[in-house]
Design a protein around this nucleic acid. Structure first.
Lengths: 274, 274
DNA sequence: CGCGAAAGTTGTGCACTGCACAACGAGGTT
DNA sequence: AACCTCGTTGTGCAGTGCACAACTTTCGCG
């Protein structure tokens, strides 16, 4: 640090880059996320080395060298002809391994199907990822449903029944994070103030289930209840949703306890006391 | 492990660590893969910091600091109580993003369902990942099939119909890589010599489809054909499989052209000339 | 067909990162 | 309460990887 007479470039007071933060690893993950978010469309979605470097504000050599291990791990793949980057099969392996660890999914599967048959709407299973929810399973009424495209996608907590159901039983600081992330209006009925949301959560806690009454999509109602593990920690939520014509306001009061009972059974399977 | 003739004997003694190889990033990816491969079972699957460090031969502090960005990126998650590591929702996001880029899946979906109805067996869609195949879609006959657990899993090329179907139209060096990876016998009928495999590939090219006649599982026959893109590059394969009682040796000759025709239609959707 | 531009790849100095070791704090067990 | 194990944090020093630029390759265009 303090060198001899030959004075060092005294940058004292300057930004301390904080050691041991794995800057290069973070850069590499930024590369990965950039590819993930940028390969929306199918075949045409190209990401050349220069496009990547420009988009991330890195130099080409940096991206090239960071990408090499990602390609080796098959999280990324390079087009053999163009050299452009896309996600690789390793990404799929990770995702499937993640799903395999979620015994919540297997535990809820049967109940979810029964709930779908009973109610007729679409049943969703979610896990928290504050301030978002992640959809991990989906059961639809139609036959021959292909693997749901929405599995793996995220939605905000504050404007979905599943999100509010989980939030109602999560620590206070999570609500803070949700509010901090912003509460933009999705429809005219979205709860957009922290106070309104807080009051709603209290209501949810007393009745045992959450309702999304056209707060996220104009024509959809949704009823959700939380799933707990053996620690009484919220590990997910299960919901039914349908067009408002299928789930009338009056029917919500019947369906609410049904969904809550289903969620409670799943919780018990997961080891919850009650 | 499978390092064949990778390193030359020339660099003996002189340990050249090879610069610019992103050693730390590779370590981090090793951590990720270790977690992925080690969290087979559900809730009980714990990976403590020390267990991870021991399993990888790294020091605890290294693992701790490498894991931090992975946790931030939600590829990993830590159990709030025990601090143990597991895969995070970000892994699912990656996997789903990968599937979204595969328009092969959407292109083949309808044909796959029709093939399943026509033949009655299980239909698989795969992409190459030499020397393996990766299953990216699956259509089963039974109703109410949950999201296929085998999606995302891998199988060797040399002993599967889909693998051989792709291999038959891939560059010669891919066959070399497959042979180099080894051809262990899975059943008594597995092709275990490079020559037998090469002869089989020639046969496949002439008739237009590949057959796995109990080479991978004792009681299963499988018929597959390759899918090409606009460059006439192999981008996948589609197959039907069933117990030998359902697909007799005689029926193979009927089903082969059916599967090949299906694959050709998918290829055409993908922009192939013919 | 040859020329130019743009993209991808490789070499290298130097600053900074992150590895290992060890000390420290936090629970849990006897 | 003492012990033990696990997770976390501080720090010297070696080695990594970032940026820049030279080089190679590929492609477009007259």
């Amino acid at each position: 640090m303090t060198s001899t007479a030959a004075d060092t470039p005294a940058d004292r007071g300057a930004e301390r880059p904080e050691r041991n933060q794995s800057a290069s690893l973070r850069r590499a993950l930024a590369v990965l996320e950039h590819v993930r978010d940028h390969v929306r469309d199918h075949a045409g979605a190209d990401l050349s080395l220069t496009a990547l470097a420009d988009g991330l504000g890195m130099s080409k050599s940096t991206v090239l060298r960071l990408a090499a291990p990602l390609v080796d791990a098959q999280l990324l793949a390079r087009d053999r002809d163009s050299g452009h980057y896309r996600l690789g099969p390793g990404a799929l392996r990770l995702g499937q391994a993640y799903l395999a660890t979620l015994d919540l999914r297997t535990a809820a599967s049967e109940e979810a199907h029964q709930l779908m048959r009973e109610v007729g709407g679409t049943v969703h299973l979610c896990v928290p990822d504050a301030p978002y929810v992640v959809y991990v399973d989906k059961v639809e009424n139609e036959t021959a449903v292909r693997m749901a495209s929405r599995i793996g996608s995220r939605a905000p907590m504050y404007c979905t029944a599943v999100g509010k159901a989980m939030l109602a039983w999560m620590p206070e600081d999570v609500l803070g994070a949700v509010v901090a992330a912003g509460l933009p209006a999705i429809t005219t009925r979205t709860l957009t103030s922290a106070n309104a949301l807080r009051a709603e959560l209290t209501r949810i806690r007393t009745r045992g289930y959450a309702v999304d009454d056209r707060e996220n999509e104009p024509e959809v109602r949704c009823i959700a209840a939380p799933v707990f593990d053996h620690n009484h920690t919220v590990i997910g939520a299960i919901s039914v949703s349908a067009l408002t014509s299928r789930i009338t306001a009056a029917r919500v009061r019947d369906l609410g306890p049904t969904v809550a009972a289903t969620a409670t059974r799943v919780s018990r399977t997961m080891g919850a006391a009650r």
